[in-house]
């Protein structure tokens, strides 16, 4: 298993956001995490990436414990994420955003940078080439010199994805990658995600578009009130009475 959560809990004061969650993510899969609003999905992402500390339990990635590490260290171990709201360095150019993501985790050698040594210049050149290739693969190359904050929503989403890929993380965590996209844009993004899986990436995502989740995911984990209520293939999940109950119940209470 690539990722393993062992009895993970998170409390905010008296609120139990996640309770005793144990789940695994297999390599080279697209794994969906779903559940009604407030089920604890975003909290799980924040725990996985070290943005929030666990109350108890542990998280193991590639056989090594990552819970308790700083977010930057977790990223270097190979877990990278996007945020629910499109989160970019808005004042920087599109190319700089990707360069940042490419280099932020790289060792920064102070003296060679200062002296502008040949090694430094080589590294910069190859980073730019990789950044451009990534932008091209997501059809963003024409926008390379635009300020990221000026892009339309769809391209900002794509840029977020480009940045996560730039970190070379094996496990890519996506918080609502399809939110706010048109049907065509969703289809395009889903194709990109399938390509990534074929290239060896593992994807863990939260998404509200159920048709997309069912069509895209290999495995789905369902949370409700911070507790795992079901896990399985899309077909299993769709037929699971507990899941239907949770969603319908949520619908009723929302109405």
């Amino acid at each position: 298993m690539l990722l393993e959560l062992r009895d993970v809990s998170k409390r905010f004061g008296g609120l139990h956001a996640v309770t005793g969650l144990s789940m695994t993510v297999a390599p080279r899969t697209i794994h969906g995490l779903i559940g009604p609003n407030g089920a604890g999905k975003s909290t799980v992402f924040n725990l996985l990436t070290g943005v929030l500390p666990l109350s108890s339990g542990e998280i193991v990635f590639k056989g090594a414990r990552v819970s308790g590490l700083r977010p930057s260290e977790i990223c270097r171990r190979g877990i990278a994420r996007t945020f629910q709201a499109t989160t970019l360095f808005r004042e920087s150019t599109v190319l700089d955003n990707v360069l940042l993501a490419l280099q932020l985790h790289a060792a920064t050698a102070f003296v060679s940078t200062l002296l502008g040594t040949a090694a430094y210049r080589d590294r910069e050149r190859s980073a730019r080439a990789r950044a451009r290739a990534l932008l091209a693969s997501l059809r963003l190359l024409d926008l390379a010199d635009e300020r990221a904050g000026n892009l339309p929503h769809r391209d900002q989403k794509a840029l977020c994805l480009a940045m996560v890929l730039a970190t070379a993380a094996e496990l890519v965590i996506l918080d609502e990658p399809l939110a706010g996209l048109t049907a065509q844009e969703s289809t395009d993004t889903m194709a990109v995600l399938r390509t990534l899986r074929a290239e060896g990436k593992t994807i863990l995502l939260v998404e509200h578009d159920m048709r997309a989740v069912m069509g895209l995911c290999d495995v789905i984990t369902v949370l409700d009130h911070g507790v795992l209520i079901a896990e399985g293939t899309p077909r299993d999940i769709q037929a699971n009475p507990v899941v239907i109950e949770a969603y319908l119940g949520a619908e009723e209470s929302r109405a």
Binding site: C75, T87, F89, A101, L104, H105, T167
Partner: peptide
């Protein structure tokens, strides 16, 4: 600009 994003990208 965004210290949390920088941190989750590895700084």
């Amino acid at each position: 600009q965004r210290d949390l994003l920088a941190e989750t990208l590895g700084v």
